[in-house]
Design a protein around this nucleic acid. Structure first.
Lengths: 141, 141
DNA sequence: GACAACTCAGACAGTCTGTCTTAGTCTGCC
DNA sequence: GGCAGACTAAGACAGACTGTCTGAGTTGTC
């Protein structure tokens, strides 16, 4: 009972690398027109590149990563997910495919992967506070 | 200087869901023949399914996830990566695409995602020992 | 020698992705 | 009024990837 739907929904679709570059631009510049995005991603790009960006936005919208509104006759596009949501979506997808949905194996492997490379003291501290929080809610349900 | 090559190489290719089911079978049963894997994955499957498994193994081998040796005239296939390596590979891929390769943003998001849902007491305990281990190696380099 | 099982190579359709073309619509300006 | 320029919408296209399957050759058994 409960313990669901209290976190915003995670993206279930996959954003392509190219689609991701459009999202990155939207994150950097906020709500933008196709024209502005095209100029950013393909400087000097003509009508063809413009249409490419248009199609990428259309697909991103279908996947729920992007929303649009109209300002006069032109469309304004904005990202409807932030980078963190995208990351969490991919993490969850990895967990679903490789760990039956469980997240803790990911934590284990993440720490292992980071072992050689440095994890900052801040990272470790945030991990520790997670463990403390989890322990608390475990003892006092 | 250094801090490289002391961890085994991470898979750089992507294993499909279907390919993954073959890997899962190899993890469960260890070194196996195509026949045994086919019987496991497609019970009662005929020559067609056999060939499907064969092709999946061929592609897994090309991607470096599977190795083969010959026992007499039949081939014996084994996984050359374990589940953890696959997980770490996907984590690194996510980090590369979404965080410029840095792993700590993944940690942050993972903690956030794990916060909401229930982790088992075992998970929490193993997490705690993980944190303790990290803190130790942090204090005493 | 016939048969069964295995291997190897490749065909095939369906899907996904990035790219581009075309046609239609609206704008403001001369 | 009408025209050039910019925007939208719809879809065509090739290349890659995936899961599936067929066929031709090999090898060992009875």
């Amino acid at each position: 009972m409960m313990s669901e739907a209290n976190t915003p929904p995670l993206p279930d679709s996959h954003a392509t690398d190219t689609e991701l570059s459009v999202l990155e631009a939207l994150w950097r510049f906020g709500e933008s027109t196709i024209r502005a995005l095209t100029d950013e991603l393909y400087p000097g790009g003509g009508a063809a590149r413009y249409a490419t960006v248009q199609k990428l936005l259309e697909r991103l919208e279908a996947k729920g990563f992007v929303g649009r509104r109209r300002a006069g006759r032109v469309g304004l596009f904005r990202a409807t997910v932030d980078r963190g949501a995208l990351i969490r979506g991919r993490l969850q997808a990895t967990a679903d495919r490789l760990c039956g949905g469980a997240l803790s194996p990911l934590l284990t492997q993440l720490v292992e992967a980071a072992d050689a490379r440095a994890l900052s003291a801040d990272d470790i501290a945030s991990l520790r506070s997670l463990v403390d929080r989890l322990s608390d809610s475990e003892e006092a349900p």
